[in-house]
Design a protein around this nucleic acid. Sequence first.
DNA 1: GAATTACTGCAATACAATTGCATTTAACTA
DNA 2: TAGTTAAATGCAATTGTATTGCAGTAATTC
Lengths: 138, 138
Amino acid sequence: MKDPVEILKSHNLKHTWQRVRVLEEIALDQFALSQPELEKKLGKEIDRVTLYRILNTYEDKGILHRVMDINGTANYAICSPSCKVHEHHDEHVHFNCSNCLKIYCLEVSIPKLKLPKGFKANAASLTAYGICENCNTN
Amino acid sequence: MKDPVEILKSHNLKHTWQRVRVLEEIALDQFALSQPELEKKLGKEIDRVTLYRILNTYEDKGILHRVMDINGTANYAICSPSCKVHEHHDEHVHFNCSNCLKIYCLEVSIPKLKLPKGFKANAASLTAYGICENCNTN
DNA sequence: GAATTACTGCAATACAATTGCATTTAACTA
DNA sequence: TAGTTAAATGCAATTGTATTGCAGTAATTC
């Protein structure tokens, strides 16, 4: 993973310890972290509002991507390096485990779709629901 | 569309005018209706809480399916007839217009996915984002 | 190291969803 | 069809989630 400081610099964002903490926390995990989880982990150190704002700016800048789980709560994961500021297409499949509720970013890309005449898509999200490798073996 | 009364009967649900109204309202529209829209349309007749509860039971029973839009607000549409209790097979693609915010249920089915070893999917949701046919021509 | 700009934290507010409980309504039965 | 039972509704209160304004603070620039 790239250095948090580098990431901030390359996006013209001020370097604050709060922002670094958020990046660290999210980068640590191989799966997407949900808003509540993040809040539980960082709530003592960082204000709720600040966390919201940091996550929003990160999403805007294309540093994080947001995945909605089945309940409509936001989950965040680091964008792939290929993700640039303007073209924000981390078009890979996500997997939401019904047991542990974790969200995985899979190395599977979303298939091209043939949409009806008149519909113009510029992004897509695909989430599969089921049992993950971890919960499967236990 | 099937008769609301029939639908209720076949799912062992009591026949109340509130439940019929909700079904009518959702069936009328070709697209998925959002919670706020439903509330605006039915708020004068039906209590908020009742609406929430009706939508939940409908989802449980497989009468409606719920689609989350980009903002995490719930949208509801009638399930296909093949949809059984607790196993939702409405595996079609949804389209979320960035302009009018409507959600369309497209007649396009979700492609089969090749998942990594260990992952077992039993459902999937695919939403494309862009401009719909209506907003495109205007 | 002083000035400028933008980020943070707090308080207040707005909005969304849930729960408990009393009342009403639908389905069942005699 | 009246009486009984179980379930659904509506209201009030509560909880939870997200947003906004603003004063104070911290980070970059020169």
